[in-house]
Design a binder for these strands. Structure first.
Lengths: 318, 318
DNA sequence: GGGATCATTGCTCATCTGAGCAGCGCCGGA
DNA sequence: TCCGGCGCTGCTCAGATGAGCAATGATCCC
């Protein structure tokens, strides 16, 4: 496009978008035909001179969602806008809200819904509305009786989600990780526990988040792992954890021995499930989000614009 | 508007602006009539959820221009967008460009154009295109043979502007400020100088900038005033200088004695002129811009979005 | 200089959109 | 309970817009 045309397209855009003139009126002002004005406006859009942004906490970014679906093979992607967001916490809250919305709109309503736990899932539970999925049975898919009692622990998250759904909750009464393999195996041998795990393996849908592999992990907070252990995992290639299990960027278990001592469904069971919803948001979680998406650990991703863009850029430069 | 309507208007906006769906198609998706969709979109706009921004160095902000004209009585206002600007220098360059554009589009082309000098005017001169105003006579309206030679001095600015116009330049061969009143009077008595001043007084249009009253003033740089003198002026209420003369926020000369020793047209001559174009940009210049605009020193203001908004806010809270 | 090619222009026509209006239902007061 | 008022809904219709097309004109390569 010529230089004067570029300038004209800007003048036209000013009159069209800021002064609400019709293309015809702009034509008179700029001494152009209305068709020329229309083309100038189209070129201004095409060149990215016109930026249209939807500024709202509930706004999504559909074009990014589409590109994500196309480039990753996800069956669905929910990307919340980060326009006007000042803190990571706000972004994560928006994402949790979007996840709650997505769950609410799920049809058919899954009979059993497997969930993990953590800050994100707790946040999702808070955003759900009463009666969001009548009759659903919420099953906890990985262990997590917190060692130091706080709100937001595994059990309370599951109970809240189930309660708000007017459904029932099935809890997994077990720590996330055992110190000794024998203890873990003994626990799994228990009829009740085995029943819960069987239910978890057969859930119709799963919702889980993922954690970055660093000292702020919920597993460290809860006392299952030490900072030193995390550092060791990172040194061996861990990017983060999914349902309590640390994976590297290829989606592989980093420490098989640790993995054996971890209670809950296996990573491969997520891979095989038809509907697995990952809720991952925040600037520190780009790496683990990539690992989850690239290795087919989820079929639906709920995330924020920045994380989504990071995923797309990865794709563009293989 | 109800909560669900708000959410619907966001969904509609996403589909309309990001996915380029027609209101009819959106109606089918959201199970609404197309009229309802149209109203939702209108309400989304009205509530400010839709933000349309023109991102381009040459973009202007017409609504702000209009409000400025209405609230100040300026005959014209040019406000450049500050979208995507990272530095004050970039903003000033944009403003200078806009001033050059405005001068180029002036009709009828003024026969004599009075100009001041300084960083801003120098910048404007660089942005003018060859042949921008054939035959114009550019007259320097205030003294300013720089004491330390640099580009961007009074003479070179006037010459550049005149040269690019394919016109002629009339320089004022005089310092900006004399130390002794008698010397100044003697200088003014000189036939040549008197002739230039007469020409300057009768110019058909003026272009000038204004400086903030601080140590960075061009008058300090050029050696006409010391930092101590500036501080003294500030203490007496000076907010900045126009054509080398320091004024307070009421547009009054701060130091009549200093004013007498300053060579060039008087502030009152600007006030009486039919077309005076002030080019003022930058976050430090809000105060002097206000003084210039409020006291009728210019009929046309070329400025940046931030300065314009500062002026408007002043007006809103008198 | 003479085509061949391709971008640009102004147009027709179908579609999309906003203004204005009548009908409907909801709500509060008699 | 009935009635008036108010706001929302869906409609008509005119105006605004975008897609597609033929004519024009510029450019390039012989």
């Amino acid at each position: 496009m010529s230089d004067t045309d570029e300038l004209l397209s800007i003048r036209a855009a000013e009159l069209y978008y800021e002064e609400n003139q019709t293309q015809d009126e702009i034509g008179v002002i700029l001494r152009l035909t209305r068709w020329k004005v229309g083309r100038l406006l189209a070129s201004a859009k095409a060149n990215g001179f016109i930026r249209i942004e939807i500024v709202h906490p509930r706004a999504r970014r559909l074009p990014i969602e589409r590109r994500l679906r196309e480039s990753t093979g996800l069956t669905d992607a929910i990307v919340v806008s980060s326009a006007g967001v000042s803190s990571d916490a706000e972004l994560q809250s928006r994402t949790a809200q979007a996840a709650a919305d997505y769950l609410t709109s799920l049809r058919p309503i899954p009979r059993t819904l497997g969930i993990s736990w953590g800050r994100t899932l707790h946040d999702v539970s808070l955003h759900l509305k009463q009666g969001w999925a009548p009759g659903v049975n919420v099953v906890q898919i990985n262990g997590g009786v917190s060692l130091n009692q706080r709100t937001g622990t595994a059990a309370s998250t599951a109970v809240t989600i189930a309660h708000k759904a007017d459904g029932s909750a099935t809890l997994l009464p077990s720590p996330a990780i055992f110190e000794r393999l024998e203890t873990k195996q003994a626990m799994e041998a228990d009829r009740t526990v085995a029943g819960v795990l069987a239910l978890a393996r057969n859930a119709q849908a799963y919702v889980f988040s993922a954690g970055q592999a660093d000292a702020n992990s919920a597993l460290v907070d809860s006392g299952y792992l030490t900072v030193e252990q995390i550092n060791e995992l990172v040194a061996r290639g861990a990017v983060g954890d999914v349902v309590g299990r640390y994976i590297d960027k290829h989606g592989r278990i980093v420490d098989p021995e640790l993995n054996e001592r971890t209670v809950g469904i296996q990573i491969d069971q997520l891979r095989r499930a038809p509907l697995t919803i990952a809720v991952i948001s925040g600037n520190t979680k780009h790496a683990i989000a990539r690992a989850v998406v690239r290795n087919g650990l989820c079929t639906v991703l709920v995330t924020d614009e920045d994380t989504a863009n990071a995923l797309l850029q990865e794709k563009d430069t293989p």
